[in-house]
Every structure is written in C-alpha cells, then in structure tokens.
Design a protein around this nucleic acid. Structure first.
Lengths: 228, 228
DNA sequence: GTCTATAGTCGGATAGAC
DNA sequence: GTCTATCCGACTATAGAC
C-alpha cells in the first residue's frame, strides 16, 4: 500500500504530492459529476498526475472516493469540533443553565452558517455530502458518524436545555428544522441567488442570513419555553 | 418527430406506451444516477422498450432528460397550484388581512410538507430537482420558473402580509428558512431517519413534522409582528 | 413503430519499461 | 514512483430489415 499524509515515507519529506493532489481534485470532480460519471482520466489530468497513480495509491477509483469522503469529513469536523467539544464538556459537568445553552447553540449555528454560507470552500465539500444524502453509498457512514449525528445531537441537547424540555423526538425534529434553515442556503444556493437577484453570497448577505436565522432561533426557543 | 402525450397519433388511441414508459423510468434512473452516469441501456431495459426508441421519440438522451424535467415540474406544480392561484387571487383583490394571510401560508406549507415528507412519490421527483440545484443544467430554468420562484414569491408575500412588514430581502430570507425547514426532511431523509431511529416517515411522523414546522411558523410570524 | 447488428468512442485497470 | 501502451468492456447513436 502507500503511506498516509502524516506518516510520511521513510525516504522523502513529502513522500508523494500525487497522493494529496488526487484527494483535492477528487473532491471537485466527484462533487461535480458524481462517482459514476466522474472519470479517473479527468481526475488524473486535473491533478497533473498519471492515471495509473490512482490504482497505485488508492487501489482504484472506489478507494480514492472513500478517501475523498474521509478527507471531507475531516474538513467539516474541523469547522465545528471545538464547539462540539465545549458543549460535550459543559453537558458532562451538568451545570448548564438555559441562557448558557442558548449561547452555545447560537455559537454552533453561527459556525455552521459562517462555513456553509460564507466559506468559499463550502460548495466543494457540500456537493459530495449532498450526493451522499441523495443516494447513500458505502461511504455514507463516514459522514453520518463524524458529522451528522454529532451535530444533530449537540443541537438537540442545547434546545432541550435552553427550553427546559426533556429530550424527545419533537426536540430532535426542532434541531433538524434549525439545521434545515442553514442548509437551505447551501442546497438551494442557485435558487436563492436567482430569486433574490444576487450575484452570490457576499459578507453582507451572509451577515443578513445569520441575523435572520439567529432571530428565528431565539423566537423558537422563547416560544417553546413559554408553552413548556 | 413524434407526438405528445395529449395529441395522440391519428392511428391508435394510445399512440405509444413506450414514450410514456421512458418518461416514468427516466425520472428514476436519471434521479438515481444523474444525467451523465445514467445510461440509455438502463432506461430502455427498465422501461421494457428498445434502446433505439430513445433517439426515435426524444431525439437522444438529452432530449429525454429535458422532457423528464418538464414532466416533474408538472407533477410538482399540480401539488400546490390551487393554493398558489388562491393566494394570487386574494392578493390581487387587495383585501387580505394578517390572519387570513397566515391561514393561507399554513395551507401552502401544509401541502408542501404533505407532499415532500408524506408522499411516496416525492423522493423520485426530489432527486432530480436536487441534482439540478447542485449543479444546474440547461433544464434548471424549467424548475426555477415553474416551481421555485412561484413558491418563494407566494411564501414571501404571505409573510409580509401576515406580519405587516414591507416586502424586503429579509422577508424573502425568512421565506427561504421556512422552506428550508420543510426540505431538510426530504434532502436529509436518510440522516433524519437514522438519527431518530425511524424506519421511514409514517403518517404519524409526518404529522409530527407538520406540527413542529407549523408551530415554528406561527412563533416566527408572531415574533416578527411584535418587533415590526 | 420496433427490432438486430454494428460503428465509433471512451471508460478503468494492468503490464512492464525506466 | 511515474510513465506508455494496451486490453477489454460499456457507452450512444445509426442503419436497415421487418
């Protein structure tokens, strides 16, 4: 086999650039065309490496795809990891009050919005994630366990704590609607941009989206707190 | 060329079943694999017609795809058309008060939820729509003008009327977050089902999703009405 | 209107030189 | 570790029989 990014080969400092370049280009080409329609020829050409490097480093097209999904999972994880850990710790301590939970929830959503809407790298990663949602492959689990489940869990817990509700299916559904309010701007970016006559998401528009979503989060939490 | 569904051939009553079967199967195969990866072989085989029928009826693979997207647009349109027309009429009359607008908004969202979450046909159509969102092709316009724009418009108008706000970018963004709360259950269906430990969306779960979204709609409208 | 046969292209993977 | 050359299978579309 070959060596990982981090455990370099014993001979050279950067064992092989081809390996890393294939991963990066794989994100774009698999994202744009999907697994079946993407061709190893496109990927190799864009990466500036020989086609034979794909079977060599990744045991073929499918092996490359799985590594690409893992690579994406790591990138997404890094965007929210610190906040997820903070939430986990505060929950473990057991002394989280409603106001603090709302602050943590807002912090997490803000990070999600900043990345999903504001980051120029988001579309590249989102395309593959959405393809896996549409039609899960054997790589779906990687995304579910590393990204989806931890996010839904954290949001649900913060909603429950902030509103004083017991964790329940209804709370989880609320968590999903909150996440939905963010991802719609990623999933339906083209539609949003065209419907609003934008040229894209500038930092002003990102800020306005953030404001709208956080406002709705607060009014939702307040309404749920009132009705119990 | 060939004849349309409606303007049958002069010889037989149902000019050609092959034409219609290709459309139906096209929805599934293009949805599952995407345009590039879908093969005319698969489609023809599943439809039980000869491969040569595709160039014959639709002028090739791309022609079939465009007809499939138009077919889907018609199906989605039919789900909400009556409510969209009702909203259009009431707005034209100019005597719509806030409560009535909220009722119409809820009616529209309910139809959207019932179809997107509750209908067994929704996944078939949604896959192609989402692919077009991900990476718009020349068929994207069909969906935008027939489905997306009218929906966003109607929801925005009802929010503005219900809250007494002037139509603005912020109102449109709110409309998108409302729509996002619905479509997340379609886009991230696999994730939702797995995270909540469901087997799928039963009518009970659809009802609970509807309840959660309509509750949040009301609390959003109330909050916006208060703050102006 | 539906079929078979086939042309012409392009896909992924491998072998083996260097 | 990277290259060229090549195999073999699968693709879309067409031609022409029926």
């Amino acid at each position: 086999m070959h060596v990982d990014n981090k455990t370099k080969s014993s001979k050279t400092k950067r064992s092989s650039n081809a390996h890393d370049r294939l991963l990066e280009v794989g994100v774009d080409v698999f994202g744009k065309h999907g697994f079946d329609a993407a061709t190893t020829r496109m990927i190799a050409k864009k990466a500036g490496v020989n086609i034979a490097a794909i079977p060599y480093y990744f045991n073929g097209k499918e092996g490359l795809y799985h590594k690409v999904v893992g690579y994406i999972a790591g990138k997404l994880e890094s965007q929210v990891k610190s906040t997820l850990v903070e939430i986990e710790e505060r929950v473990a301590e057991g002394n989280l009050n409603g106001e603090e939970a709302l602050v943590l929830l807002e912090k997490l959503l803000e990070k999600l919005i900043n990345f999903m809407v504001g980051s120029p790298e988001a579309p590249r990663f989102a395309r593959i994630v959405l393809r896996e949602q549409l039609y899960p492959s054997s790589a779906y689990d990687i995304l579910f366990y590393r990204i989806m489940a931890p996010m839904i869990n954290a949001v649900s817990k913060m909603i429950a704590t902030a509103t004083g509700a017991m964790p329940s299916r209804a709370v989880s559904l609320c968590a999903l609607t909150l996440i939905g309010q963010v991802i719609v701007f990623r999933v339906a970016r083209e539609t949003t941009v065209r419907a609003l006559g934008l040229k894209g998401y500038s930092s002003d528009e990102t800020a306005e989206i953030r404001r709208v979503i956080l406002e709705q989060t607060r009014s939702m939490i307040e309404a749920m707190s009132r009705t119990g």
